[in-house]
């Protein structure tokens, strides 16, 4: 603060403080607090808002346990509340997306950080960035075309003789959603991992090799532990963005895929019950945060490592 004052003078410093405060307060705190407060109140006709029935309760949150469906898993049949089921699948497939993103991003990040000629690096990074210049909606629709029954992917796979009959990608449970989410968020994994690997002293890789380590041992003992904070921050981003994505599941989802954000969306738009929708949204945020915290504890990553 003292530095800012000395460098920019009181006028500019005040403006900067004001803008930051506005951003925090009006764009982050107030909307969230409004939704948070609403989530505890019942959905009432306009005339009854503020009336005797408008009291705080946890009812909106407990709605997630309504409506049982019968499901079977590994031959074991059980009943489960339908929204809990959707929620669990959302978490599971978000994890799957995170793992796939990591498996794709790690070799590429290592290649970019340690193997590629530094001269061609800017070109490669640019090539990776170009898709981000296109709107997410358009990219999702592009994949919708690619995955279509008579689309290019099926044509390609049939062309090289890998499959005989075309596959209904967008009608295969969560396949379309997972493909779309991986495509959309893989760069959020790539760049933190790339940054982390890049900061590794190449001499350490050479030292390990010189001491006789095979390539996988070098990665397991030297590169991966060093890149752990980058992997963690990439995973948190990909996981949170996937679990919170609405667009990709809406466009690339099948008749049998339901994402929890779609359930929230239905409470907002179809049921017009903003109170329950808010409760569901906070539920998603809370459980995802707990889940990430747990994962960080299991992998022994500190929050300060991620912030780096």
């Amino acid at each position: 603060m003292q530095d800012l004052l000395r460098r920019y003078g009181p006028g500019l410093t005040f403006m900067m403080g004001l803008l930051v405060a506005f951003w925090l307060l009006m764009l982050v705190i107030v909307p969230n607090i409004t939704l948070f407060e609403q989530s505890f109140r019942p959905y009432l006709p306009v005339t009854e808002i503020g009336g005797p029935r408008d009291t705080y309760s946890l009812n909106n949150y407990l709605k997630v346990f309504d409506g049982k469906v019968e499901k079977s898993f590994l031959g074991h049949v059980f009943t489960i509340p339908v929204h809990v089921y959707t929620f669990s699948l959302t978490i599971f497939y978000s994890m799957l997306v995170t793992v796939i993103c990591f498996l794709m991003a790690y070799p590429l990040a290592y290649y970019l950080a340690k193997i590629v000629n530094p001269k061609s690096l800017p070109t490669l990074l640019l090539l990776l960035f170009i898709p981000l210049w296109v709107s997410e909606v358009l990219r999702a629709f592009a994949w919708w075309i690619i995955l279509a029954f008579k689309g290019p992917l099926n044509a390609l796979l049939q062309g090289i003789g890998l499959i005989e009959d075309p596959i209904r990608w967008t009608n295969m449970g969560y396949a379309g959603v997972v493909i779309g989410l991986v495509y959309t968020y893989v760069l959020f994994m790539l760049f933190p991992v790339y940054n982390a690997i890049q900061s590794l002293d190449s001499n350490q890789i050479e030292a390990a090799e010189d001491l006789g380590a095979p390539w996988w041992k070098i990665h397991w003992r030297i590169v991966l532990p060093h890149a752990k904070p980058g992997i963690a921050s990439g995973s948190v981003m990909v996981f949170m963005l996937s679990a919170g994505s609405l667009l990709v599941p809406s466009i690339l989802g099948s008749t049998t895929s339901q994402w929890f954000t779609q359930t929230i969306d239905q409470w907002f738009k179809d049921a017009l019950d903003w109170n329950t929708a808010s409760a569901y949204a906070f539920l998603l945020l809370l459980v995802c945060t707990l889940f990430v915290t747990l994962a960080m504890w299991v992998f022994r990553v500190k929050l300060s490592d991620i912030a780096k």
Binding site: E206, A207, G212, R221, H226
Partner: peptide, 25 residues
């Protein structure tokens, strides 16, 4: 066995694991 100019010790391992890395391999 090469000793690097900046030594290139492994900062995430304790000393004994550093020394025994070649044996672990």
């Amino acid at each position: 066995a090469l000793i690097f100019q900046n030594l290139a010790l492994f900062p995430l391992m304790p000393i004994w694991e550093n020394i025994a890395f070649g044996l672990e391999v």
